[in-house]
Amino acid sequence: MEALIEELKKQIIEALNLEELTPEDIDADAPLFGDGLGLDSIDALELIVILDKKYGIRLSSPAEGKEIFKNVRSIAEYVQKARKK
C-alpha cells in the first residue's frame, strides 16, 4: 500500500504539473480538493485519466470520483481493489 501511495503521488505531481512539489510535500491523508492541496474539477478529470491509463479503471462520470479522490490514501485503496492492470 505504501509503495502504491508513493507511486500515485509521483503520478499526480507529473500529471497535474505540480512543478514545485515533491512526494513528501503531499500528505496521503490530507484532502486533495478544496482547503487541502487545492485541486479543482479539471484536476479531478486528470486523476480519472491516470486511473484509466495506469490501472485500467474506467469511471463514467466525475461524480463517481468524488469519494475516491478524497485523498491519496483513498485513491490507493480504491486502485488496489479495482485495478485491471
Partner: peptide
C-alpha cells in the same frame, strides 16, 4: 482516447 483535459481547456 485518454486525452488530457488540461490541454484542451
Amino acid at each position: 482516447t485518454l486525452l488530457k483535459p488540461t490541454l484542451f481547456m
